[in-house]
Amino acid sequence: MLSLQNISMTFHPGTVNARLALDDLSLHLAPGDFAAIVGSNGAGKSTLFNAIAGNFFVDSGRILLDGRDMTFLPQHKRSRQIGRLFQDPLRGTAPNMSIEENLALAYLRTSPSKAPFSRLSNRDRELFRERLRLLDMGLEDRMRQPVGLLSGGQRQALTLLMATIVPPKLLLLDEHTAALDPAAAEKVLKLTRETVERDRITCLMVTHNMSQALEYGNRTLMMAGGRIVLDVSGEERRALSVGDLIDRFRKESGTEGDNDRILLE
């Protein structure tokens, strides 16, 4: 589904601040793959996501999604097929627009065939209500309220729904539960797992939680220095313990883990 072929990215090239953020990185995700990514700060996780989403164009290498070369496709065109959630729950929704309008924006944008002046139909509204009910947060009765009134957890759950209401070819989760309180984080994670499994969405999830990295999805990746240094799945992954992963993490990041956020639970 997603194929990254030898992508590299240097920030501030030719200056003293030059930094190789992605180093000849290759990655292939099969349809339905759900990979969790761990790595210390500065390992290149967010840069990887930005490269895939199109925040910048990579210096070299190719990016293919579902067989289509999108190396030079601008961000807003890629995001028709790529859903993305950020750590900040305020980032994915428009606060002064209603729940319904936010969903409409997400729903209408993914269908390029629809005319720019198309409006929401009652059938669309019914679909939104149905999907909101699945979140089990009572939002289906508050569709006309501005999103700014919702809690962080509710906003992130809504952002998840917006990103997946038309199943994307790829879902990027950039520590999307890290800023939520434990109960809300658990709820959003549960919703994420249900959605991804139901629609068989190919998904990449950055996390700092080592047990999550082994528990969620079918692959675990570790990044360090702009490369993928560990890629396990299947039997090998099942055999891996949280302790093993942490040892490997410390070795790769070259620290004792003191100044890095590692969550064990």
Partner: peptide, 29 residues
């Protein structure tokens, strides 16, 4: 009133409301 509820109108409102969101969604700001 009609225009601001169309797909284009919603995108215009979101552009003013949360540019962060709009940049990472498929709206061409």
């Amino acid at each position: 009133c009609w225009f601001l509820h169309t797909r284009m109108g919603l995108a215009i409102r979101a552009t003013g409301d949360n540019p962060d969101m709009v940049r990472s969604s498929s709206v061409n700001t």
